[in-house]
């Protein structure tokens, strides 16, 4: 079975990886949900309930991508799960919730490619920014995102249940995101200069 890939422009990163990329589809939950869960929960100390997966996958299937082996039955090798919503700060904010690559397929740029696909999809939908959190000790993940242009915007003390600290990573996609709350950038009326 070859997954349907309409409406998505796919750029195969490297023909040698032997992977095809596909957008998630709610109708194929029976095929994909379990392998996606298995892949993601492998790295988690405490599991997410199925409602967490469905929360993202059913509301934003167009922002979830899978890297599948090109050989049938196309097992999943990597997956990215995200959402896009209006944030209380006033921005239209993309959020990458989960990214996982099977241990046999790491260090091949698959994760980066998935993130790029998601950013493009978010950008096409008018996102102002993309954010995510990652453990401060996860250097592979930090490197991946920082290479794509993400900045560390905050350090979050004991962010995870297991007590580890996180960095919030941030990528602006549109000008004015930093001051959206005020309705765009406005120069101050008067710039004060200290009298000499």
């Amino acid at each position: 079975m070859t997954p349907v890939m309409e409406n998505i422009e796919l750029i195969p990163p490297d023909p040698h990886t032997g992977l095809i990329y596909a957008q998630y589809e709610v109708a194929k939950e029976e095929t994909y949900l379990d392998p996606i869960r298995a892949m993601i929960s492998k790295d988690l100390s405490e599991p997410y309930s199925i409602y967490v997966y469905r929360y993202f996958l059913n509301q934003w299937p167009q922002l979830c991508f899978m890297a599948l082996d090109e050989k049938p039955p196309h097992p999943i090798r990597a997956v990215i799960v995200s959402k896009l919503e209006h944030h209380r700060s006033g921005t239209y904010r993309g959020y990458i919730a989960m990214l996982a690559t099977s241990s046999t397929h790491r260090r091949r740029g698959i994760g980066s490619h998935l993130v790029s696909l998601v950013i493009s999809a978010m950008q096409a939908r008018g996102a102002d920014e993309v954010v995510l959190e990652t453990e401060t000790s996860n250097s592979a993940s930090l490197k991946l995102y920082e290479r794509l242009g993400f900045l560390r915007s905050k350090r979050l003390h004991r962010y995870y249940l297991n007590g580890s600290t996180a960095f919030r990573l941030l990528l602006y996609l549109r000008e004015g995101a930093g001051t959206r709350i005020l309705g765009g950038i406005s120069l101050p009326e008067k710039v004060r200069v200290e009298k000499k």
Binding site: S116, I119, E129, L148, G149, L151, S153, L170, L171, Y172, L173, R174, E175, G176, A177, G178
Partner: peptide, 11 residues
């Protein structure tokens, strides 16, 4: 492609 000095400065 997503690197933009102005956006980075803003962020």
């Amino acid at each position: 492609p997503y690197y933009d000095p102005t956006l980075r400065y803003e962020a």
